[in-house]
């Protein structure tokens, strides 16, 4: 068991209009197994609640938002406003099934990145690796990131 002071914290949840619970729980399990303190906000979580959770856990390394119903862009539309208000200042990672329908032309990724999403993942198994990279970058700041 990692000691309380050094345990790494992440905030996870599913986007506002999305009620898919299974992947959310699997990711929580996977991260807990890897030693993280996981603050899981669960399904149907508005961006505002992610921001509140980050205020309550200011040491959280990242906010991970799952979106499987194709409404990621609409559900995250408040991100620029929250960031402008000085909130949700940690890396925001989005993953899942990002656009409606099976046709994915990369446009959806572009739109989410423009909104201020920091990272987009296609595979939940990449999450620990990305968190480790972000963690390392935080401990030893890289230039030009």
């Amino acid at each position: 068991m990692t000691s309380r002071n050094t345990q790494r914290t992440v905030i996870i949840g599913v986007a506002r209009s999305d009620a898919h619970a299974v992947a959310n729980h699997l990711i929580a399990m996977r991260l807990r197994e890897a030693g993280f303190l996981v603050v899981n906000l669960g399904v149907c979580t508005p961006l505002e609640e992610f921001a509140e959770a980050l205020s309550a856990h200011p040491d959280a390394e990242a906010v991970l938002i799952g979106s499987l119903n194709g409404h990621a862009y609409e559900d995250l539309a408040d991100l620029p406003a929250l960031r402008a208000a000085g909130r949700l200042h940690c890396p925001v990672i989005v993953g899942g099934n990002l656009s409606v329908g099976s046709h994915k032309d990369g446009d959806e990724r572009e739109r989410l990145l423009r909104l201020g999403v920091d990272h987009i993942l296609d595979d939940a198994d990449q999450i620990p690796l990305l968190l480790d990279l972000l963690h390392a970058a935080r401990v030893t700041p890289l230039t030009g990131v």
Binding site: A23, L26, M29, R30, E33, A34, A124, D125
Partner: peptide
Amino acid sequence: LSGRLIDEIRSDI
């Protein structure tokens, strides 16, 4: 198993 946990449970589902 821990590295493949999500995949394993997904395949159980």
